[in-house]
Design a protein around this nucleic acid. Structure first.
Ligand SMILES: [Zn+2]
Ligand SMILES: [Zn+2]
Ligand SMILES: [Zn+2]
Ligand SMILES: [Zn+2]
Lengths: 152, 152
DNA sequence: CTTGCTCCTACAGTGACTGTAGGATGCACA
DNA sequence: TGTGCATCCTACAGTCACTGTAGGAGCAAG
């Protein structure tokens, strides 16, 4: 084993961190403002200086966001991962709930797809006054499926 | 044919209109503020008075919103339906585009579902420090699918 | 020393509403 | 005529997760 007196510190400017994680600079500052990222050290001139730990944390946040977790859930997941001896039941619950939400959204969007497909097919490409699409929009009775308020 | 000197006017207060269409009072006022609904007549005391034409228009708006159309699209659809002699090609284009958007969102959500299902199944319900869910969140390399930024 | 890139704060805007405060109106009933 | 109460009014802040802008300061290379 070689003896190293100091690890390479690998300080990162905010732009470096942005490139390293694929998160925009403005978004990194936003995450700091809402407490998702801790306040980093600063240079004398006031610029943010990040460490590898920051990079790991931001990668976690970004990946969780990419997977659709909400910020509050990510906050909780980060807190949980700081207590490795606890049971991971809560982690499982958060992920399962998110999965259930995704499945519900898929189901509602599929209902929507059915109705929109029917609508688009019904159009005979004539004049606006004869358009079946507008008829359907004007009156839900023209709909085949029940689809009350399918907003995300 | 019977001769009627006056049709029943059926004036509606904003609350009546809300009940008749299922749109909340605040939302009706909001639609007026963004120009989706025209400014109605007022009583001497300043209360809004709606007609059957308003009710039909609001039903159209509500149904289009329920089907996921954005406000800008609805604005255009309403303008189009005021010109019944024009070709309905633009109506068709708006609906087809919306359908394509819905299908793309379904596809992305299904990718998400796959990955979340895999994650949840991988959890062995032990301690946080051993949780596979957190491993996956910490490093996209643990993912099976490519799913860059699946935010609606 | 200058050029040009990176970074700073602070705040407004997005979409489609929802919620609240504080007051005015209108109608039925005594 | 009074009074009580449901309904309605405006104006504005808050939601979510950012994005965009203005106006300036830091910093390294040439
Ligand atoms: Zn048509
Ligand atoms: Zn319908
Ligand atoms: Zn687990
Ligand atoms: Zn991944």
């Amino acid at each position: 084993m070689s003896v190293k007196t100091a690890k390479p510190a690998k300080d990162l400017a905010i732009g470096d961190l942005a490139r390293a994680t694929g998160v925009k600079i403005t978004t990194i500052r936003f995450y700091e403002s809402i407490g998702l990222m801790p306040e980093p050290a600063r240079t004398e001139g006031g610029r943010r200086v990040y460490s590898e730990a920051h990079r790991r944390r931001l990668n976690f946040v970004r990946h969780a966001r990419d997977l659709g977790f909400e910020v509050d859930a990510i906050r909780e997941l980060l807190t949980l991962s700081d207590h490795p001896e606890q049971s991971c039941a809560r982690v499982d619950a958060l992920a399962s709930q998110h999965l259930a939400d995704v499945e519900e959204r898929i189901a509602r969007l599929e209902l929507l797809r059915t109705e929109l497909t029917r609508m688009v097919k019904a159009c005979r490409h004539g004049r606006v006054g004869d358009c079946r699409i507008l008829d359907t929009l004007a009156d839900h009775a023209h709909c085949a499926t029940e689809h009350g308020a399918v907003r995300d």
